Simulated scan of single mutants.
Amino acid sequence: MASSSKNVIYAALAGNSLIAITKLIAASITGSSAMLSEGIHSIVDTGNQILLLYGLARSKKPANELHPFGHGKELYFWSFVVAILIFAVGAGISIYEGIHQIAEPQSISSPHINYIVLGLAIIFEGAAWYFALTEFRKVKGKWGYLEAVRRGKDPSMFVVLFEDSAAMLGLVFAFIGVLLSQLTGILLFDGLASIVIGLILAGTAAWLAYETKGLLIGERANSDVIIGFKKIALAHPAVNHVNEVLTMHMGPDFILLNISLDFKDAAVAPEIEAAISEIDAEIKQSYPMVKRIFIEAESRVQRA
Rank of each mutant, 00 (worst) to 15 (best):
K6F: 08
A12N: 13
L13G: 13
G15L: 08
L18N: 05
L18C: 11
A20C: 12
I21P: 08
T22V: 09
L24G: 11
A26F: 13
S28M: 13
I29C: 01
S33A: 15
S33G: 11
E38M: 11
G39V: 05
S42F: 05
V44Y: 05
G47P: 11
N48C: 11
I50N: 08
I50Q: 03
L53W: 03
G55I: 04
L56A: 07
L56Q: 14
S59M: 04
K60R: 13
N64H: 06
N64S: 05
H67Q: 00
H71K: 02
F80A: 02
V82A: 04
A83N: 03
L85Q: 09
A91M: 13
G92P: 09
G92W: 05
I95C: 05
Y96D: 04
G98W: 05
Q101R: 14
I102Q: 02
A103V: 10
A103D: 02
E104S: 08
I108H: 05
S110Q: 15
S110K: 15
I113K: 06
L118G: 06
L120M: 11
A121H: 07
A121P: 05
E125D: 12
A127K: 03
A127Y: 15
F131E: 14
A132M: 10
V139F: 06
K140M: 07
G141V: 00
K142H: 07
K142C: 00
G144L: 13
G144D: 10
E147Y: 04
V149A: 12
R151H: 10
F158E: 06
F158V: 00
V159I: 08
L161E: 09
M168R: 04
L169V: 12
L171N: 13
A174E: 07
F175R: 09
I176N: 12
G177L: 12
L179D: 03
L188W: 05
F189V: 00
G191Y: 07
G191Q: 11
L192Y: 09
V196H: 08
V196W: 09
G198Y: 05
L199D: 13
L201M: 15
L201F: 11
A202E: 06
A202I: 12
A206T: 14
W207Q: 04
T212Y: 01
K213H: 04
I217D: 01
R220C: 11
A221V: 13
S223M: 05
I226A: 03
I232T: 02
A235Y: 00
A235M: 01
P237I: 02
A238F: 00
A238L: 02
A238M: 08
H241Q: 10
V242F: 00
E244F: 05
E244T: 11
M248I: 15
M248T: 10
M248K: 09
H249N: 15
P252N: 15
P252I: 14
D253W: 06
D253T: 15
F254R: 14
D262V: 05
D262Q: 13
D262K: 14
F263A: 07
D265C: 07
E273H: 15
A275C: 03
S277W: 00
E278S: 07
E278K: 12
E278Q: 10
Q285E: 12
Q285A: 12
M289N: 12
I293T: 06
S299D: 09
